[in-house]
Design a protein around this nucleic acid. Sequence first.
DNA 1: CTGTTAGCGCGTTCAC
DNA 2: GTGAACGCGCTAACAG
Lengths: 343, 343
Amino acid sequence: MTEDDGPTTGARSVTLKDVARLAGVSTATASKAMNGRDRVGAQTRSRVLEAAEQLRFTPNALARAMHAGRSGTVGLLAHDLDGRFSLPILMGAEDAFGVGETSVLLCDAREDSIRERHHLRALLSRRVDGLIVVGKTTNPRPPLPEDVPVPVVYAYAPSERPGDPAVVPDNVQAGRLAVAHLLASGRRRVAHVSGVQDYLAATDRARGARDALADAGLELLGPVRYGAWTEEWGRAGARAVLDQHPDVDAVLCASDQIARGALEALREGGVRVPEDVAVMGFDDWAPMVLGSRPELTSVDMDFEGIGRRAAQLLEDAMAGRPARGTLLVEPRVVVRGSTGPPA
Amino acid sequence: MTEDDGPTTGARSVTLKDVARLAGVSTATASKAMNGRDRVGAQTRSRVLEAAEQLRFTPNALARAMHAGRSGTVGLLAHDLDGRFSLPILMGAEDAFGVGETSVLLCDAREDSIRERHHLRALLSRRVDGLIVVGKTTNPRPPLPEDVPVPVVYAYAPSERPGDPAVVPDNVQAGRLAVAHLLASGRRRVAHVSGVQDYLAATDRARGARDALADAGLELLGPVRYGAWTEEWGRAGARAVLDQHPDVDAVLCASDQIARGALEALREGGVRVPEDVAVMGFDDWAPMVLGSRPELTSVDMDFEGIGRRAAQLLEDAMAGRPARGTLLVEPRVVVRGSTGPPA
DNA sequence: CTGTTAGCGCGTTCAC
DNA sequence: GTGAACGCGCTAACAG
């Protein structure tokens, strides 16, 4: 209070040496006392700790990192921060790295591969101990350069190079589970309104759905209707389905947004949901599924889980236990009103 | 290619010393050559650069930081990564710090103030040069401890301590602009369906709306209807408005979700939008405003701009030009079909 | 123009 | 039990 320069000056932060001096010991002793290593006199230690407290000593992680050879940071290279996928993944990853142990250096490369290279350089120069690369879509993406000197785990999108460790949603299984749920709730004539055909997420979900139907001796009502990932397309797709297959009793939509559109079109077409037709989506995106009426049954792909698993894989790799290959994360159906019992 | 240990071993990364040795110069000379500082012989420099290239030398930012006293990183302390506000803010901030110059260390404290303290410790021990604190709502939040030794800028939510630098959306102005737009498009009987009353964002927007109406010699149709930030409430609120004020010609909603609900309820009530009643929301959240039919006019609060401005303020502060007080970021109306011309 | 020296803050041998 | 000395990788002073 008396001779404080104030926080803005950022006066040289207190070092271990300051603590040692105040405690009347050498820096080495202070270090041991702080880290609980080695044998140090009990009261010596408490003197040191007290001094540290008093000076508000904050160990310099940079200095520590230089010595340890590990920085205690990982880089997260994302490409769709505007989207809703990388966020939960990021949260899961942050979560898995305990607070204070490992910190996350975040970069968003937009869609730009040259930006990605720059970010990569920056991260490597900061000596991150590992990297998580979050894809923009679930389609395989070009791998990072071979000579990246730290472990890399791909999340959401796998690498195009086989064997690279990756954690991705199991879209095929998601399709299967969705159909299984529809069948279990008594539906038999299932149409599928999907998203953009170039997305593996779309074709995989469709495949899973087809497989599950085939297992039950059934087929999709008409072809998979690919379109866009929009409500608009959901409306159009559902109208087309209704037109060509008035006997439809379930519309499986490849995203929650498509499903909302479908819901709306069906209602306007005089169809009751879920009494006449069940509707379900994918991703279980809260604002979509909870806002619609009835609320939307959806398949939760567990993005947070993907982030957590990716972080775990990365930690293993950093600890010298590298993994290879793609780990599929199990989705699960979240049942809501839109797939209630048929009339 | 011949004696490469492979990337997984993470063999000690190449240092400036290695480069110097290969180039046949001292480390100091190598350093100067790399950084373009000082006078160095032209061919000496190219020898060094070539050696660096060949060895894939990546300067160790940690070591550099120790010497410079600045780490070249800033901490971003967020509290609603699941939400849609901090993300654009984060993007804007990341954008404002050029690639490679400053990196962002991301932490999410959830809602937990003890977690926040832990994260803060971690960030400070990593010697971030500054901090951006992103609030959960626009309500003022408790400030970080006084003794934080680096500049802090609050974004989205200001600090409760007056004078602390903050960059926040101008909700009052947003309310004014919204009403101005409604008036300009010929509406006169405006009802306001708002969100949770505890949110300053709700009351500020309401105040701005009232003010703008008063300026035109008008009043809101009935009281501000506070409720929830949900579509469900939007439906209920709009129905109530229609009930009590059948002559309403505009429903201003405090969020895009509320507006979607309102849109739906109005249509079901036999009201045409925008011919009979205009509807608009706030935040201009793409999936909401573009998915609805008609598309929704909304007020873009410019979250990215908030992030950019916060980053700029922080950079100024880190450069010794601290700012004080709250900076309001100007919103703007994005016109879409839901406020087209009245019939 | 270039090389030598010192030191950033910390952890870790080794002697005492 | 404790302290002096060294090194992590780099850069800013000085010498040469």
